[in-house]
């Protein structure tokens, strides 16, 4: 095909696959941060303190409506200005973690809101503790609602990791850029990067749909994707 060089492809493939591991670590770590901080954001919006709710709400809106790449630059460059030196990895993880935390907080919120009010009322009528209410009644019912959201953002964070290359995180896209700069060949590295992304994200999406059906089945709900 056109100018495609197979020996060059074979030569750069190991280097790209090595960098893919970094991409996966970045996505996983960022997602972990997002899961925890997102839960905090979501719960903070359910406290009786109006001012806390308001501040967190506005913060989430702000983070959600501004570009991630700009936030990455902001975190990376503003640190040194106030005397905190962050490595590219730390700054990147903070930025991408916070960005997706604000998305995930909305998923948590939608999940908790999707449980009918009667369930909460039944729990207080039965005098269940707050802990048992959440652990045994509310969260199990909220899970099927939130799986697609969590799954989409997992794939989303994976696809946003190339942005970390702008501050020098050595992930997949960064590796492709270096190869391009060294060899002046762009066709193979960028095409391979695209293919690697596809090969990971498509099966993940399929797995998430399967998983959703499995959970729905386990909870005795109607399956969405299975044909049987």
């Amino acid at each position: 095909m056109f100018d495609w060089k197979w020996d060059f492809t074979i030569e750069i493939l190991p280097r790209l696959l090595d960098a893919t591991i970094n991409t996966l670590i970045a996505a996983g770590l960022g997602y972990l941060i997002a899961l925890i901080v997102g839960l905090i954001f979501a719960l903070a919006q359910r406290t009786p303190l109006r001012s806390v709710t308001f501040i967190v709400r506005e913060l989430v809106e702000f983070v959600r409506s501004t570009p991630l790449v700009l936030q990455i630059f902001f975190v990376f460059y503003v640190g040194p200005q106030i005397g905190i030196r962050l490595s590219p990895w730390t700054a990147g993880m903070i930025a991408i973690g916070l960005h997706y935390a604000s998305y995930l907080s909305e998923v948590y919120r939608a999940g908790l809101d999707s449980v009918p009010k009667g369930q909460w009322e039944a729990c207080s009528a039965l005098n269940l503790s707050v802990r048992r209410t959440y652990a045994k009644i509310i969260i199990p019912q909220a899970i099927p609602t939130v799986i697609p959201g969590f799954g989409n953002y997992l794939i989303g964070i994976f696809k946003d990791t190339p942005l970390l290359s702008v501050i020098g995180v050595m992930e997949l896209f960064h590796a492709a850029n270096s190869i391009g700069a060294e060899t002046y060949r762009f066709l193979e590295p960028y095409t391979l990067v695209g293919l690697i992304f596809l090969v990971i994200s498509l099966p993940t999406a399929m797995f998430i749909r399967r998983f959703e059906d499995w959970v729905r089945g386990a909870l005795g709900m109607k399956k969405l994707y299975a044909k049987d």
Binding site: F2, D3, K159, D160, T161, P162, L163, F173, G180, F186, L187, Y190, T191, V193, G194, F197, L198, S201, L202, A205
Partner: peptide, 23 residues
């Protein structure tokens, strides 16, 4: 739909800008 949703926008943009000229 699957290809454009399955890969990064940044990769697609670089592909369009740096690789398409080769074609």
């Amino acid at each position: 739909i699957e290809v454009f949703r399955g890969t990064s926008l940044l990769v697609q943009m670089y592909w369009i800008f740096f690789v398409l000229p080769l074609f």
